[in-house]
Design a protein around this nucleic acid. Structure first.
Lengths: 118, 118
DNA sequence: GATTGATATTAGCAACAACTAATATGAAGG
DNA sequence: CCTTCATATTAGTTGTTGCTAATATCAATC
């Protein structure tokens, strides 16, 4: 039974679908870090980051371990790290493949839309 | 310059973050299909599917080609296909890794929450 | 060129997700 | 046991996303 439940899959992938969470993952790709350092590195709001960390953890993407008053977060396992690497690889190809054809103004929020046209 | 713009990356990953879109991708993993067949296979609403297809295309994940009155959609390239495969692989590991520990009630909508507890 | 079938687009609404500010918990050290 | 520092939680608001129904476009065939 290698067939994944679609709800689970959606939840997992939703974890990657946010700018702040991607920054967090990027920040964790070379090893575990305490929350406070993540907050500092991505210049975020403590409450906000904490919520995103809970989200990533809930999605199975990262794990946290408490040590004294710090909580250290890290990518769940090597496969997740590999997956993150693959995102970059695929995107690199797709981006050039797509730049001059059709990666335009569909499925974009107004904010995103404005970002595309500059 | 293998460094991907974060907005682009987010947009790309957002493409995978929806149940209907995942079903569409699943349905396309073995080759191109016309819209009407996708609609039939995932038992969806034509307008809705059309919008999701536009989204996936806009995210660079799929491509469409018109032939007569049909529009055939397919995964953009082999890498995207590989990425989809990797989602399943990683999820398979993560799922068992996580089942009995902490993949619970955070970052879940009430609908999702109710799905977890059954 | 009118009709039919395939797909796309629009508008409006309902559900969701992300943000901020305020507050709570919980560990460590005095 | 009180304070401080690190993190989590809650509540409320706002912006975004996804859905449906209606309508538009566009290619093919008669």
């Amino acid at each position: 039974m290698n067939q994944i439940n679609i709800e689970t899959k959606t939840k997992f992938l939703r974890g990657f679908a946010d700018k702040t969470r991607i920054q967090i993952l990027d920040c964790l790709k070379n090893g575990e870090k305490p929350v406070s350092q993540i907050v500092k590195e991505i210049n975020g709001n403590q409450s906000n980051i904490s919520q995103h960390l809970a989200c990533l953890k809930g999605c199975g993407i990262i794990r946290g371990r408490q040590e004294g008053k710090y909580v250290y977060y890290s990518l769940r396992n090597a496969q997740v790290k590999q997956l993150l690497q693959m995102f970059d690889d695929v995107l690199f190809t797709v981006e050039s493949d797509v730049r001059d054809c059709d990666m335009n103004d569909v499925c974009l929020s107004s904010k995103e839309r404005s970002l595309v046209h500059d």
